[in-house]
Amino acid sequence: MELLVAIIIGSLTAVGTYLMLRMRTFPVIVGLSLLAYAVNFFLFASGRLMLNSPPLLYVDSPHTDALPQALTLTAIVIAFGMTAVAVIMALTAYLNGGTDKLDMENEAPEVTPEERGQ
């Protein structure tokens, strides 16, 4: 199980990093989200993996470490806030600059119909 989790987190990181290195804003935002998954899962898993032992005291079983879960919970919500801000920034840049290229040239080119999509 541990191996599976490690592979999942590694793959999410790898694909997330790859997408972060693309040249358009949207893949970067998707890459950011994947990295956020990886980080959140990593953070959670740092409390070690346990089955059927939620940190609920009325459940009569061993309890897993609750602290990483609490930290991860807020991290998930913050990741949403971060993604939302990044999305609006990308939109602003696209609408003002006319392109969704990440590394704009000094002069913002005019929007061509192709770039607008559809």
Binding site: E2, L3, V5, A6, I7, I9, G10, S11, L12, T13, A14, V15, T17, A38, F42, A45, S46, R48, L49
Partner: peptide
Amino acid sequence: GLGIGALMYALL
């Protein structure tokens, strides 16, 4: 990915 995955495995 390899680095993070390996770190995760070592930690777990």
